[in-house]
Measured scan of single mutants.
Amino acid sequence: MSIQHFRVALIPFFAAFCLPVFAHPETLVKVKDAEDQLGARVGYIELDLNSGKILESFRPEERFPMMSTFKVLLCGAVLSRVDAGQEQLGRRIHYSQNDLVEYSPVTEKHLTDGMTVRELCSAAITMSDNTAANLLLTTIGGPKELTAFLHNMGDHVTRLDRWEPELNEAIPNDERDTTMPAAMATTLRKLLTGELLTLASRQQLIDWMEADKVAGPLLRSALPAGWFIADKSGAGERGSRGIIAALGPDGKPSRIVVIYTTGSQATMDERNRQIAEIGASLIKHW
């Protein structure tokens, strides 16, 4: 067993022997301040990774656009098919120029040779490549099948209805392509620590998230040296922004954090800054 596999296998073990965790309302004060600064709703939840206990939450059962955070769930569904012998990570998928959609920095470079399922998941999570996500959605049967996968996990809230990039439209009061912070946090925890996926697939999923290259201005910008984070960000229309993450000190994750916002007129930089400040408060009061 590799060191990384050992780390993920012992996530519940280490967490069980940690000192009790206590909620700190100071972080919620910052979440509410972010709402004021952005002029928009902000949803927040913080779960203990081992027990699933909610440590703090704000608007945990209000719907927010998922945006690209759905790509972690998508690759979880792909990995479940791999575990069941219905898919192979090494299978190569070929596609054409007509398949390319807006923001496809990886797939646009491989029109000639195609990409493997493993490479597509890596591109979808680490670079948020939209064509990679659409190609992977095709392998599982489309958005409705991802929703069905989530329902089978016990998540009857999260739903995907459309493809990239239309799913980022974020129309107010439109339930399409949305989740709730509580539902997303619980589902992410199941994917990373539950028995739904094999140990190898859980490790692969967290490795992809740990290698995320496009979430630097968010929670990662607030992390002290030595902290662990595996995350996936999302951005959408109407001032929408979000991030889902597993993080913790001492090089291992111990909490799940989900943050979503929508309806702001603020710039992307300002949305990023507010999420980073929430992260800084979380870490300060850990």
Score class of each variant (00 low, 15 high):
Glu61Arg: 06
Asp269Ser: 05
Ser128Cys: 05
Asp83Pro: 03
Glu195His: 12
Gly194Tyr: 04
Asp113Met: 13
Trp208Met: 11
Gln37Val: 06
Thr193Pro: 04
Glu108Lys: 00
His151Lys: 02
Pro217Cys: 02
Leu199Ala: 05
Ala77Leu: 10
Glu26Gly: 10
Ser233Trp: 08
Pro224Leu: 03
Arg92Lys: 14
Ser57Val: 10
Gly226Ile: 01
Leu196Ser: 12
Ser233Arg: 03
Gly141Thr: 00
Glu237Gln: 14
Leu188Gln: 09
Val106Thr: 06
Asp99Asn: 15
Glu87Phe: 13
Asp129Arg: 14
Pro60Trp: 04
Trp208Leu: 07
Ile171Leu: 07
Asn173Arg: 11
Arg238Gly: 13
Tyr260Cys: 00
Leu135Tyr: 13
Asp207Tyr: 03
Glu169Gln: 01
Gly216Glu: 01
Arg159Glu: 13
Val257Asp: 00
Ala148Leu: 08
Val31Met: 01
Leu191Lys: 12
Thr179Pro: 11
Asp250Gly: 04
Leu73Tyr: 07
Gly236Thr: 07
Pro172Leu: 07
Met209Ser: 11
Phe64Val: 13
Ala245Met: 07
Arg255Ala: 02
Met67Cys: 00
Trp227Asp: 01
Pro65Phe: 08
Arg271Tyr: 01
Leu89Ser: 02
Gly142Leu: 14
Lys30Ile: 11
Leu55Phe: 12
Gly263Asp: 04
Lys284Trp: 02
Thr193Ile: 02
Leu167Gln: 09
Asp83Asn: 09
Lys232Gln: 15
Gln97Val: 11
Glu210Ala: 11
Asp161Tyr: 02
Val106Trp: 00
Leu100Arg: 14
Ala182Gly: 11
Ala245Ile: 11
Phe58Ser: 11
His94Val: 09
Pro172Val: 04
Glu87Val: 15
Leu218Arg: 04
Ser201Asp: 09
Glu175Pro: 01
Ser57Asp: 12
Gly194Thr: 03
Thr112Glu: 10
Gly76Asn: 04
Gly52Glu: 02
Thr27Asp: 04
Ala215Cys: 14
Thr187Val: 02
Asp161His: 02
Phe228Leu: 07
Met268Pro: 06
Leu47Asn: 02
Asp33Ser: 09
Ala183Lys: 07
Thr69Val: 02
Ser128Pro: 03
Leu73Ala: 08
Glu277Cys: 13
Phe149Tyr: 14
Ile283Arg: 13
Asp113Ala: 05
Leu167Thr: 12
Gly141Trp: 12
Ser51Lys: 13
Leu160Arg: 11
Arg91Thr: 07
Leu137His: 07
Cys121Ser: 06
Leu205Gly: 08
Ile206Pro: 11
Leu219Gln: 11
Gln37Leu: 11
Leu55Ile: 07
Ala280Lys: 06
Ala132Thr: 11
Leu38Gln: 03
Val258Arg: 05
Thr107Tyr: 00
Asn98Tyr: 00
Thr186Phe: 08
Leu223Trp: 01
Val31His: 00
Thr27Asn: 08
Gly216Lys: 00
Leu136Gln: 03
Tyr103Ile: 00
Thr126Ser: 11
Met127Asp: 15
Gln88Ile: 03
Pro143Asn: 05
Ser221Leu: 03
Asp174Gln: 07
Ser80Lys: 00
Gly52Trp: 04
Arg92Met: 01
Arg189Leu: 10
Glu102Pro: 10
Leu49Glu: 11
Ser201Gly: 12
Gly216Arg: 06
Ala133Pro: 03
Gly239Arg: 07
Thr187Asp: 00
Ile283Glu: 15
Pro249Trp: 10
Glu237Phe: 15
Ala211Trp: 00
Leu199Asn: 09
Glu270Lys: 06
Ser96Gln: 03
Pro25Leu: 08
Ala170Gly: 05
Val257Ala: 00
Thr138Gln: 05
Ala185Thr: 05
Glu277Met: 14
Trp286Pro: 11
Thr186Lys: 01
Trp163Met: 04
Thr198Tyr: 06
Pro60Phe: 12
Leu191Met: 09
Arg159Leu: 08
Arg220Glu: 14
Gly76Ile: 09
Thr262Ala: 10
Ser80Arg: 13
Leu146His: 05
Lys213Met: 05
Met66Tyr: 05
Ser254Glu: 12
Val157Ala: 06
Glu87Gly: 11
Gly90Tyr: 13
Leu160His: 15
Pro249Val: 07
Val31Pro: 06
Gly52Tyr: 00
Pro253Glu: 12
Gly90Trp: 14
Glu277Tyr: 15
Leu205Val: 06
Val106Ser: 01
Val82Ser: 09
Ser51Phe: 11
Asp250Ser: 10
Ser128Phe: 09
Ile256Phe: 13
Arg273Asp: 15
Leu135Cys: 01
